[in-house]
Simulated scan of single mutants.
Amino acid sequence: MGPVERVDQLDHAVSQCRACRRLVNWREKVATEKRAAFRDQTYWGRAVPGFGPADARVLIVGLAPAAHGANRTGRMFTGDRSGDYLYAALHAVGLANQPTSTHIDDGLTLRGVRITAPVHCAPPDNKPTVTERDRCRKWLDIELRLLKPTLRSIVVLGGFGWQSLLPTLENNGWDIPRPRPKFGHGVEVDLGEIRLFGSYHVSQRNTSTGTLTPSMIEDVLRAAGSHAGLSVSSAAN
């Protein structure tokens, strides 16, 4: 791999990555066997790059692609219920042009927001290993370096992303408080140039049980967008 100096170069490099044998085998197995509902579709079956503009002011950090979501469609949080929830919230606060994300050519655009993950391949049982997370960290490291000139807010979805992100931020020159701040929904951490915002993950488990409601995720996205200087819609009455 040559030097990566632009976000489009990063996205291409990520999509070619085969560094984790277990994850490569799993994502390709899923792409071949498919889910019955999608048997007529061609699965992406590769590492999934980030999605959003190269000059994003807000970065959303998730966990990893879903086996029959992003691993099928090739775009982060696209084609599954977690994505339905996230993009509906982004649209509600004015940071996406439409509330749905069904396939890679559906016309969705994000306004000042980019979405990524610490692990770019779909893992079995949605559980990447620590070794896989650490091996994949180089991509997040490059992404933060490229976004640093414009980045002002980071929304972290869940504790896995939080634990993955903090050392990567430190590697890129941001001072992390000691002791390291703990993850929690609604937690905000000021790091000078940027501010971290914690949110429960938009997993089906969290959303179906009411652990995370639309208003909860919208409030976090609205706060992050506002801090970053983006135009966001006010909360509904």
Rank of each mutant, 00 (worst) to 15 (best):
R114K: 11
N126R: 11
G83R: 02
P65D: 12
A70H: 01
T78S: 12
L147V: 10
T73M: 13
T129K: 03
C136R: 00
L86Q: 04
I115K: 03
R72S: 09
R135S: 11
C136G: 04
D106N: 09
I142E: 07
A88M: 04
R81T: 13
A66E: 14
I104A: 15
R135E: 14
D141L: 11
A122S: 15
A122W: 03
L144Q: 02
V130L: 10
A88W: 00
R135V: 15
T78K: 02
D84N: 08
E143F: 01
T129E: 07
C121A: 12
V119L: 05
V113G: 03
V113M: 08
L90K: 02
L86G: 04
L140G: 14
A67G: 04
R111S: 14
L144A: 08
L95I: 08
T116K: 00
H120W: 07
I115R: 01
A70V: 05
R75T: 12
I115F: 01
R114C: 13
V113F: 04
T131V: 13
E132V: 07
N126L: 13
R72L: 15
A122K: 05
G83D: 06
Q98L: 11
D106T: 06
T100D: 12
W139L: 09
K127D: 14
H68F: 15
K127V: 14
N126V: 09
C121S: 07
R145E: 15
D106C: 11
I104V: 11
L110V: 06
L144S: 04
P65A: 10
A88L: 07
A96P: 01
M76L: 13
D84L: 06
Q98S: 10
A66K: 00
D141K: 04
R133C: 13
R137W: 00
